[in-house]
């Protein structure tokens, strides 16, 4: 199995990084390109950009952000939010993103997963699942569907999703640790990698998640101190998790 991955998630609105990022030490507050580069230099293994406005009018803005990020970033990145069609995926991937993340749109039309996977391969398609009380939530957690979490993860993987990004609604934002029970259940149900998301408040929380799954999404723990990412990596490694060796950080 490849090394465990630490994946900062950046929320983007109108071409700017928003929500909870402490920009001390950054020249241009909210510039996604500068923050991406900063996290990449600090030891992020991948990045996720989530377009939280995701209106059709905003798609051109996001495409520009993707292209600008691709020009400076030498690690992989995924773009989610606003991917509703094969055309959206083509636009984002051909602008330089490695993968697209599908959420509500995949649930509404699961054939979208296979259509994108056929064109770019499974490794280019992430299906994001926001889960709570055993069922899938959509629209940022506001809509509770009748779709059960585990069967949906299995269906998404069978249709060509190359990875499941699993957010536990009850744990997200509380900073009390990841939902390890849910993460392990989804991991056991699918054969594709699973990214744990929601709840990281300490290095120990991240290490706990990385003991049972392939990757961990982190947000506020790193946004409130972007310069602390190398230290967070070291703490996680000291807890026995093998992350990639970074000779530029030695």
């Amino acid at each position: 199995m490849p090394l465990a991955r630490l994946i900062p998630c950046l929320d983007v609105a109108h071409g700017r990084v928003v929500k909870g990022v402490n920009f001390v030490g950054l020249r241009d507050v909210g510039d996604p390109v500068e923050l991406a580069k900063f996290y990449s230099d600090g030891g992020a293994d991948e990045l996720v950009f989530l377009d939280i406005t995701a209106t059709p009018e905003e798609s051109a803005t996001m495409t520009t952000v993707v292209a600008d990020v691709a020009d400076v970033l030498e690690i992989p990145f995924t773009v989610g939010g606003g991917v509703r069609s094969v055309e959206d995926a083509i636009r984002i991937i051909e602008s330089g993103a490695d993968r697209v993340s599908l959420n509500s749109a995949a649930l509404a039309d699961p054939s979208l997963i296979s259509a994108i996977a056929r064109r770019y391969g499974s490794q280019a398609v992430v299906v994001a699942i926001d889960a709570g009380d055993g069922v899938v939530h959509t629209h940022g957690g506001r809509v509770v569907t009748a779709t059960k979490t585990i069967p949906w993860a299995v269906e998404a993987a069978s249709r060509g999703a190359g990875e499941i990004l699993l957010t536990s609604i009850s744990h997200d934002g509380r900073r009390e640790g990841f939902d390890l029970v849910l993460t392990a259940a989804v991991r056991d149900a699918v054969s594709v990698p699973v990214i744990a998301s929601g709840g990281a408040g300490s290095a120990a929380h991240v290490a706990d998640a990385l003991r049972i799954t392939d990757a961990a999404l982190i947000a506020s723990i790193v946004h409130e101190n972007p310069a602390g990412l190398p230290g967070l990596r070291r703490e996680i490694q000291d807890l026995g998790i093998q992350l990639r060796p970074m000779r530029e950080l030695i």
Partner: peptide, 16 residues
Amino acid sequence: RVPRLGWATVEPWGDA
């Protein structure tokens, strides 16, 4: 797990 996603060490070169 397939796809095989992430960083891995290459031998005999040593880098990930």
